[in-house]
Amino acid sequence: MTTPTLDRLSERSSSWLAPRSSKLLTAAMSLFVIYSLLPLAWLTISSTKTMDSLFGSFGLWFDGPFALFQNIHDTFVYQDGIFLRWFGNTLLYVVLGAGGATALATLAGYGLAKFVFPGKRGVFAVVLGAIAVPGTALAVPTFLMFSQMGLTNTIWSIVIPSLISPFGLYLIWVYAVDSVPTELLEAARVDGAGELRTFFTISLRLLVPGVVTVALFSIVATWNNYFLPLIMLSDPNLFPLTIGLNQWNQQASGIGSEPVFNLVITGSLLTIVPIIIVFLYLQRYWQSGLSAGSVKQ
């Protein structure tokens, strides 16, 4: 490499501070984002259409009567308002499952990052090995075990397996190593504070961006859950949205079929709106977490 002259040097470093934006790059990335958002646009537009205008109209533009509010109304009253029930079930599973998973992963990740204890290597080995074990590979055996314990077709058959997030544990552990200074903990110990008290008053605050990230991923995972409720639940009153929507979708085929595609589409839209709001809301915390991570270096 050539030795840079003073002029080139200042030119280079200033180009790092305030680089020009590239049109080509922006155009390429715009295509990518269109690909990402296109199905969502289709869904939003289709939810304004009646069953009739869904067929035979261009998918990416409005057509026929504007039926969004009628569709939303129909979605909520169809089959005695079971959609609302599924919505409530999903919320319950998310609060108990994702909330519990975040709490357990935070405690354990912190414990692994900041303590030496007998059996620590074993915990590492087992838990990180578990990341490589497919969750769905466990679903069938878990079902068989739970059915012997009489837990299937109860909310616990969904909540208990959702409580464990090896990836969440891994994230918190990596995050806690750097973000909670060991000297700070030692100072608190010298002052005579108990470990739990130190955790809740000092460490937890420092872990917030990591915790929010784990919570976000746990919420998405629980909200998204399909395989587990599919095998565990047979009572439609316990279904989460994902299973319920697919059941509506399947009504279209078979004997005595009653297609309700407009309700499936509107129900899908209503299912993703809350999760997207949660995500966008948490994103602000999360961005600060990301930039904090980059400043730390």
């Binding site: 969502l40 998204n224 299973i243 299912t271 997207i276």
Partner: peptide, 14 residues
């Protein structure tokens, strides 16, 4: 990143 927030079932239905 937004599609990741969309439940898999909804993604497949869409």
């Amino acid at each position: 990143f937004l599609p990741y927030a969309v439940p898999g079932v909804v993604a497949v239905l869409m």
